[in-house]
Amino acid sequence: DLNRALGKLSERIKRAADAEGETAVVLSPFTAPQRMAANGSPGIRKALEAELKRRDVLVKNGARLEVKGDYGEAEDPAGKAVVRIHGRLIDRDSGRSLAEHSVDVDNLTSIAGLVGATMSVPIEPVPADRERAIREGLSRPSAHVSSSRISAGPKSPFAIEILAGPSGGAIRPRTAEVINGQAYLNIRSSERYAIKLINDAPFEVAATLMIDGLGLFAFSEHPEYSYVIIPARSSGVITGWHRTNDEAEEFVVTEYPRSAAAERSLAPSPDLGVITACFAAAWPAGGNPPLDE
């Protein structure tokens, strides 16, 4: 969904760059409103770079044309919650804006990862009721913390826990606290961390993991993967970025996968990281879904 939206933005950039006789652009970070304390720019940037490349627009640091922009929560014409990404193409020599374009991301998992959402969403039979719950959940986050266990509410069967420790040493659950409805914890720059995904529901779930808007499989040899399965009433620990089914590259605070050479220009924010896990029921194709699905 993010790629589809940024594909449209890329087309607009491609046309404007063609008109200028340029084949390369430099990408600046996409900013979120301060109150969101979000950090989806790395995810936006990686998807945008891929879509530009598909259209023969190179991303190059010295380019004369610069793409920059911002994003935030919005509503589409039908009243559905979306993330609206607004991009601009700037001529760095003259400071002139050559093109601008807004695109909407409407997939709820993508939205949650970009804004760093914490919410329970009821499986309402009435779509309008579910939409209302989503808008409410996005505007009023509801993080619940019990020591190191972080959930979207005291009765929610889904939770995450961050395990952190020195590089090469043991990792232990890290205590979190709630500020303005969102969970926070500290991880030092020298530390590594892992993410425990907890499913206390009586059915298996598909858990989607995003860090700074980048999916767990963003650097994988299997980019077609999108989630991990957590069996009923169990948990799993994700220790790093997925590379292959046998190898993960450990999560460290200061950089994205070192071995992903092509991603050198993608750097984490120096002060804030955002981890988002999304949970949905899962069942074998041909098997039976939970009754409320």
Partner: peptide, 20 residues
């Protein structure tokens, strides 16, 4: 072995912000 699965609608999103 890979088992094809279907998934339902999002039930919960949980985020944690970490400061360095």
């Amino acid at each position: 072995a890979e088992v094809e699965r279907k998934t339902g609608r999002l039930r919960a999103a949980i985020s944690v912000r970490y400061t360095k």
